[in-house]
């Protein structure tokens, strides 16, 4: 499967799961429902917990052919043999992460300005996470919502595939793809859904 295709239904985790076991089981359910990529993000967890979650998610993603990405931590990505990392502007720069990861791994990046984006593209980023498309509660520092028209403009300017992130409900997913995204990143809508598997199935119905 191409990277673009694997980025289509992208789940970002949250430390609100409470435990490694719970986080992994939510992801397993979501993968069964049709999630194509999982990003491990769990702020404030210890490195031991992160590594344990990463190794379990690696196995769960392997079984389904799901892309497995680690937020921020290149060391944990390497230790768990993840498919790649997702970096923000405060994290390690894309170029140096590439040095450690080598050419075969996937690097995603969340730019905050056009200059950020251009620098990341020049450093060899594989995809961009652009947002928040809508208002979000799961990431306190995400900034003001872009809305769809501005999001579509940013997609047009980008030279690598873009996924939309931030406050995206299942019912919004189609509109984000229509705006030019190759994929949609969901957090709350699937991760905190009463039934993550059912939520993922609904997402597949929206964006097959």
């Amino acid at each position: 499967m191409t990277l673009e295709r694997r980025l289509r239904r992208y789940l970002v985790t949250d430390s609100g799961a409470g435990s490694v076991e719970r986080l992994v089981s939510i992801c397993e359910e979501a993968i069964q429902g049709g999630i194509t990529a999982v990003q491990l993000r769990a702020k404030d967890w210890s490195d031991r917990e992160l590594l344990r979650a990463a190794c379990d998610l690696r196995a769960a993603c392997d079984r389904a052919g799901t892309l497995f990405i680690v937020n921020d931590r290149v060391d944990i990505a390497l230790a768990s043999n993840a498919d790649g990392v997702h970096l923000g502007v405060d994290d390690l720069p894309v170029g140096v992460a590439r040095e450690l990861l080598g050419p075969g791994k996937v690097i995603g990046y969340s730019p905050e300005t056009p200059d950020d984006r251009i620098a990341a593209e020049e450093a060899g980023v594989d995809y961009l996470g652009v947002g928040p498309v809508f208002g979000t509660q799961t990431k306190g520092d995400a900034g003001e919502a872009l809305r769809l028209d501005r999001f579509a403009e940013l997609v047009t300017q980008s030279n690598v595939p873009v996924i939309g992130i931030g406050g995206i409900a299942i019912d919004d997913a189609r509109s984000v793809i229509k705006a030019g995204a190759v994929g949609v990143a969901v957090v709350g809508a699937v991760f905190f859904a009463k039934e993550p598997r059912a939520a993922a199935i609904e997402l597949v119905a929206q964006i097959p």
């Binding site: 590594l51 230790a79 450690l100």
Partner: peptide
């Protein structure tokens, strides 16, 4: 990862950090 990138001579780990073996591998 930072230790590797800046070519630090070493890394120091706590009880809740990555295990020594994983650090050694990197």
């Amino acid at each position: 990862d930072v230790a590797a990138l800046v070519s630090a001579g070493g890394a120091h780990l706590g009880e809740r950090s990555l295990p020594v073996a994983q650090a050694r591998r990197l």
